[in-house]
Design a protein around this nucleic acid. Structure first.
Lengths: 223, 223
DNA sequence: GATATACGGAGGTTATTGCTCCACTTTTTT
DNA sequence: AAAAAAGTGGAGCAATAACCTCCGTATATC
C-alpha cells in the first residue's frame, strides 16, 4: 500500500520508513475503531511516534485518510467483480454482501468515508461508478434465476448495507458478529419465497444493546 | 406538555408564557431535524428569542432536552401497550413497529436520546424496563400464533428498529418514507414462511443515496 | 565526523459550544 | 401614572478541542 509515498525521488531513511509503516498500521487501527474523527495525535500515540512525524509524511489528516481508504474502497469494488465466481447467482450475491459487510462492520472509518464527514465526495462518486455495473449484474442475475424478488433494485443494496453496517459498528466491540443475524433476516426477506426461516447467527445477549448504548455514550463523551 | 414548568409558585408573565411555548416548539423542531447537538443558540434563533431567554426557563441544555423527550419516549412505550388492540398478533406487532418507526425516523433527536450522546442513561434504562414486557408479549403472541419465526427474541426488535431509524434519519429530507421499504423486506424475513413477497413502498430514486450522502456531508460540515 | 534527514511534543491558532451578565424593555401592581 | 417586579436579548467569556507548526535534539548515511 501507498506505493506513491514509499518510492520518492530520494528514498526514505531507514528509521523513517519504519515509522511510516508504524503510522499506517496505527492509523488503520485507530480509524477502524473510532472512525475518521479520531485525532492524528491519537494515531501518533498508538504508532509510538510524535505528531510531527506523522505530519512530515502526510501534509494533513485528509491525505493520510485518503492514502488509507482508497485501498479499502477499491477492495470492496473488487468484491463485486469477484463475486460471480462464488457459486450460483444467489450465492454470489450473498457472498458479496457478507464479504463487503464484514469489512464495513469491522471498520468504522469506512462508514465515515461513505456516509459522513470530510472525505472527498468525488472519490466516493468515482467508486460508486465502478461498483455500480458489477452490483447491477449480481442483482439482475439473482432475479433472472428466480432467487431474488423482482421488486428490489440494485440501489437498494448499498442502502441496506449502510443500515447493517451502522449496527455492526455500534456493536463491534460487544458482539462483533451480531450483524450477521440481521443480514440473514434481510436475506430471508429478499428471497422470492421460502417455506422456513434460515438459521440465524449469534443470539443477542440481553445486555448487548445496553452495552452498545453505553459504549456509544462513552464514545460520545470522548473516552 | 411540561406541566411541572408551566404552573410554578408564581405564574409566568404573559409574554414569558408565550415565549416558553415558542421555545418548546422551536426546540422540538430543531432537535428533530438536526439531532441533540444542535445548539441552543439555534433553538433560540428559530424561536425568535435570545439565548438568555431560553436559559431563564431551563437551567441548561439537558433540562430542555429532558423536558422534550420524556414525552416522546413515553409515547413509544405506550405504543407497545396499545398495539394488541390493532388486529391479530402479527398485525399488532407490525402496527407497533410502524408507529414507533414513524416517530423515530422523523426525529433525529429521538435517536440521539436512545443511542448517543448526553441523555441521562438511567431514564433510558427506566423506559426500557417499561417497554420490555409489552414488547415481549407482542413477540411471544406473534410466535405462538405461527406468524413470527421462532428463532428471534424480543431483544432483536429494538436493534432492528435502530437499524431502520438510522436509515430513516439519513434519508429524512430526501425520501421521508424510504425506510418503509426496508421494514417491509425485514418483515418478509421475519415471517415464518411465505409464498410471495409483500408489496414494497417507494422505490429509491437513483439519486437518493447520493443526495442523502451529500446532505450528510453538508451536515457534518455544519451547514 | 560531517551533513543531511528525521524526530518529538509543547504550544500556537482557530473554531465551537455552553452559558452568563446586565443594560434595557415589558408587564403587573398599586 | 408611576413604581416595582419580571422578563429580554445577544455580545462576549471560559472551556474545550482539533489541527497543525516549529525547532532544539537525535539518528542515519556517506
Amino acid at each position: 500500500m501507498s506505493m506513491d509515498i514509499e518510492n520518492n525521488p530520494r528514498p526514505l531513511r531507514a528509521d523513517a520508513k519504519r515509522n511510516l509503516t508504524k503510522i499506517l498500521d496505527a492509523a488503520a487501527l485507530v480509524f477502524a475503531e473510532k472512525g475518521l474523527d479520531a485525532t492524528l495525535d491519537e494515531v501518533a500515540a498508538v504508532a509510538g511516534v510524535g505528531v510531527g512525524t506523522v505530519y512530515r509524511r502526510f501534509p494533513d489528516k485528509d491525505a493520510l485518510i485518503g492514502a488509507l481508504f482508497d485501498n479499502a474502497i477499491d477492495e470492496i469494488v473488487n468484491l463485486a467483480n469477484t463475486a460471480p465466481r462464488h457459486g450460483d447467482a444467489w450465492e454470489a450475491l450473498v457472498w458479496f454482501l457478507e464479504e463487503a459487510l464484514q469489512r464495513q462492520c469491522a471498520n468504522r472509518g469506512l462508514r465515515d468515508v461513505v456516509v459522513g464527514s470530510s472525505f472527498p465526495i468525488d472519490r466516493i462518486e468515482a467508486a460508486k461508478q465502478r461498483l455500480s455495473p458489477a452490483l447491477a449484474h449480481l442483482v439482475e442475475n439473482a432475479q433472472r434465476d428466480g432467487f431474488l424478488r423482482d421488486d428490489v433494485v440494485s440501489a437498494d443494496f448499498p442502502i441496506m448495507e449502510m443500515m447493517i453496517s451502522f449496527l455492526g459498528n455500534m456493536t463491534a466491540h460487544v458482539a462483533p458478529d451480531l450483524w450477521r443475524r440481521y443480514l440473514t433476516i434481510i436475506l430471508d426477506g429478499l428471497v422470492v419465497s421460502r417455506n422456513s426461516p434460515s438459521p440465524l447467527g449469534a443470539l443477542p445477549d440481553d445486555t448487548v444493546m445496553g452495552e452498545a448504548m453505553r459504549s456509544a455514550h462513552r464514545h460520545a463523551r470522548r473516552a
